[in-house]
Design a binder for these strands. Structure first.
Lengths: 204, 204
DNA sequence: ATATTTGGATACATATATGTATTTCAATAC
DNA sequence: GTATTGAAATACATATATGTATCCAAATAT
């Protein structure tokens, strides 16, 4: 597994990453509240010592984990929206984005978990909302760009459109996760398509 | 507190209710995974003995709690949708419903918690989805009624419309809870109004 | 009145959590 | 090569959880 002899910095970074990865896995499985520090280090193959040497506590690690994930998400976002100059398919794009960005259900669950935790813990909420706001800003930027190019006017401020679009995409995805039978892939897509489409038409 | 001498049945029902109420409170505060049986009984002023005498375990209690809450929600639903014969304001109605039905944030958090738990636990998922499906059926019924009366045709099967509308309403509410500053009451309402309105127009 | 049931408290055995204090051993510095 | 540093393990003290087994007192039945 470990290929070359690591120096301190590298070694520390490695365990840190291992802990984060393990945390992601185990939190997705058991929920944040239901996950103990012990669970995390066990999954990662370390001990509690390593954990407390790297993080202040569970909250701290969680935010760190989300930050990493968020960075990845932005990469996907830019990839999806940069690859084309044709702006007419905002719906498709955003759906594709959410299809890609939550590449697995665990990830979607993780963010739901985070939001829920945020509702209950003010300090955590503040930090999480920095990430979420950044998300809104990016989507919002895309909405603006879209309207510039199509010469239309958004029916609401771009940021509010972003809030709605994000909410919709996420919750349909989530509904699908909760009930994959009733809300199967096809249904989820139809619903998203209709809702996105309708809202876009409203702006012409 | 206790007014009259209770017989066994009544007494049992009373503790049961007390436990359920306490659980709702404490789960909303700490999350399901983060809540111990001990927490629940402490809040209710009983002991673990009472708990295990009334429920098989935490999952069992949780479903029971949701079932009760669900029943209440349906009452609100009917109240909101029965009070008028004017069917033209589906959006208003549904928004009003979601405004009323999740009369406090705790309740909304509780259902999110439940969904999240369901994603991870198949047995629980089955039972939760019975409740959610029933919800869809009711909203769906309203959508149908709406289209009958307005002589329009839904752009998607009524049930799929219901899925989308519920997802939207819930997630905007949730977004508001997570970030009450950015997604304040006014923003949430504007977004909901626009999205609902657009979708409804799509059906004409 | 006495016997029986049973809801819920108490006791028990065991398992798991937390956070800090201390130790160890490899990586750096000298 | 020896000294120093620091990441992670171990040890420790304490707290909290779980589920069952047992007990008790109030509510029924006889």
């Amino acid at each position: 597994m470990v290929r070359k002899r690591l120096n301190r910095e590298e070694s520390r970074a490695q365990t840190r990453q291992a802990l984060l990865a393990a945390a992601g896995k185990v939190i997705a499985k058991r929920g944040f509240g239901g996950t103990s520090v012990e669970d995390i280090v066990a999954e990662a193959g370390y001990t509690r010592g390593a954990f407390y040497s790297n993080f202040k506590g569970k909250d701290d690690l969680f935010i760190e984990l989300l930050r990493d994930d968020h960075a990845e998400m932005l990469e996907v976002f830019h990839e999806v929206f940069r690859t084309t100059s044709d702006m007419h398919d905002l719906g498709d794009r955003l759906r594709s984005f959410y299809g890609q960005v939550y590449r697995n259900n665990d990830q979607c669950a993780l963010w739901m978990e985070a939001r829920l935790h945020a509702v209950r813990h003010a300090a955590f909420r503040t930090r999480l909302n920095q990430l979420i706001d950044e998300n809104y800003t990016h989507v919002s930027g895309f909405v603006e760009r879209y309207h510039e190019l199509t010469g239309t006017k958004p029916p609401l401020p771009a940021r509010e459109m972003a809030i709605g679009l994000c909410a919709l995409a996420e919750s349909v995805k989530f509904a699908h996760m909760v009930n994959p039978v009733q809300v199967n892939e096809a249904v989820a897509n139809r619903v998203l398509e209709l809702f996105f489409g309708s809202v876009m038409q409203a702006s012409e």
